[in-house]
Amino acid sequence: MEWYYWLVFGSLTICLISLLVHFVRLVKLGKPKDYSKQTGNMNAAMKYAFTGSMSPTKKESAFLYLPTYTAGILYHLGTFLAIFLFFLISFHMQIHGWLQWVIVGFLLVSGLSGLGIFIKRLAKSELRGLSNPDDYISNILVTLFQIFTALVIFNPVFLPGYLIETSILLLYLPLGKLKHTIYFFAARYHLGYFFGWRGVWPPQ
């Protein structure tokens, strides 16, 4: 096995262990204990927290910023696709024909979306002030991950570069804001708990 495979599997192991540490810590700290009298339906609220409340029609962060929101959705879908493809590529599975072109096309669009978000962060003074290097590095690493995935599907000659970039991403992921991979779900859970307990969610 080539050295860059060792590198990426080693990085993946470190990444997964680090994320597991975050996850275990969250689980150990446990769910809230609220002494007030519950008035809402927690199951319905939890369902709403992970579904309806994230609808673009419900969130101003979506419908007031449609281009950014759309870019963000595409960017995240591209990331999920690239993660899935990472495992296929790691196990030497190849994609041919029209599917290859569809995937490459989609990853280029999602990668460009990531780049667009990067440029927006850099260009808008308010966002620039709000940002720190982690915001830019995280974006660049994930965008490159998608672009490299497209390239390697297009031509295996890019494989060493792809696996090196992926390794850097995996090693960096638990250190900065990319760990919202884990915390996003916990945040939705806590929001569902808070609003559900008081009967605010789901709104009727």
Partner: peptide, 13 residues
């Protein structure tokens, strides 16, 4: 712990 680690500073708020 959750909310201190969740913001991605997208500024969409």
């Amino acid at each position: 712990l959750t909310h201190l680690n969740s913001c991605v500073r997208c500024g969409l708020c």
